[in-house]
Design a protein around this nucleic acid. Structure first.
Lengths: 227, 227
DNA sequence: ACCTGAACACCGTTCAAGT
DNA sequence: ACCTGAACACCGTTCAAGT
């Protein structure tokens, strides 16, 4: 019995941090946020659960590393834009596409404040804010406001995705029933919510997101000029 | 042996949804987000874990109900403001104080998109946006932008609180080491992050949060007048 | 150095059984 | 109607033991 044949079926490629992160992304994409499990990941990588801990500190580390890979790719792919405004829009759009393709992204970003993934976004936003002519002492505020808005949207989108997956429903259907609830709220206490229930139902996530970015950019410009 | 004495030690007050929610809030405040457990809650309420399910659908239901109680109180306590701008600021400030007192709040809000707690905030913001004179077709956008910014900040604050608790460190110390990391990032790739590392260390959360709100309000006003 | 997988200390949730 | 608490089906993480 020759050794060369009798050796147990070992992975040709050895385990790597990057291999693990890629597998984690694939798992998150297909099984959702709750699908990322050390056991499921070990099965996919044909290894033991404990092996993963040699390359990764813990689940948080893995989750934010997965999000960082996505964000880094998104930032690399975002065009720099002819104007600062266009550059900011491009960053926002790239992040929206990334969130759309990986609905768990917002949840990962929410849990890693000040970590690499969010710093990548802040970096790109900050440079454009600088190019826009915002004075140095206002750049921190402007960039953070854009970032926090972006994180707020991505967090809500991620939560919507979780709900849609749990209930096995389409995103549109979830929004539809939610709008129904809003329109049936007490008329005295919730006039505004009732008024905009239709917009909740009909709105386009991407357009609204970008319009919000534009709104904030307008605020930055207003702060520069007047007052 | 008289029955009146031999009866087992039963709670004087029977279990209520509100009792449970109050206990959940107390548990979250003292033990943090990870401290909210059906077993811990049952112990605190001197009952079995299963009993809670008679009054509450599941953990998500409980978590958002707890956040809704806090938000409702905060909105009731927020002054209406002499001007719409002041009203928006008051809502934001009330939410900041609530987040400060209950660091888990942002996490709960992030997970319940379109639910009652966020609708309460949107309602208050929307009315002020209306009073500000934003045309009807822009009110949805304006109110959502404010809300998403607020949710972004609250989510990051909540995550910071989790990290500080896990590592048993002061919030200031966490920020300090984070600023250190930023200032040591690659100079070519992260010029902006390095530049603002000092502001990360020195910034005031409350002031920056309110300044961001003002920035967005300025954007709304700019959109009304010009363009 | 890297991997294995059983074991530990937890979870949320259910449900027969009680009052 | 409401409560009890054991039981189920999971988790993340550790660690002795292997190669």
């Amino acid at each position: 019995m020759p050794d060369t044949v009798a050796t147990p079926p070992r992975r040709a490629d050895s385990l790597t941090r990057d291999t693990i992160i890629d597998a984690a992304i694939a798992l998150l994409d297909t099984a959702g946020e709750g699908g990322l499990t050390f056991r499921a990941l070990a099965a996919r990588l044909a290894t033991g659960a404990g092996a993963i801990y040699w390359h990764v500190a813990d689940k948080d580390d893995l989750f934010t590393a997965a999000s960082d890979a996505i964000v880094a790719r998104a930032m690399d792919g975002a065009p720099h834009g002819d104007t600062p405004q266009a550059g900011i829009r491009a960053v926002a759009l790239a992040m929206f596409e990334a969130m759309d393709a990986h609905p768990w992204l917002g949840s990962a970003l929410s849990r890693a404040p000040g970590q690499l993934p969010t710093v990548r976004i802040l970096e790109r936003l900050g440079r454009q804010v600088d190019a826009l002519g915002v004075p140095p002492n206002g750049q921190w505020l402007a960039a953070c406001t854009l970032l926090n808005y972006l994180l707020g949207v991505s967090g809500q989108n991620a939560a919507n995705a979780v709900i849609a997956r749990e209930k096995g429903l389409e995103r549109a259907h979830v929004l539809d029933t939610m709008a129904g609830v809003w329109s049936r709220l007490d008329a005295q206490a919730f006039p505004f919510a009732r008024k905009v229930a239709g917009q909740l139902r009909a709105h386009d996530d991407r357009e609204d997101f970008l319009a919000g970015i534009d709104l904030i950019v307008h605020g930055m410009q207003a702060l520069q000029e007047g007052r």
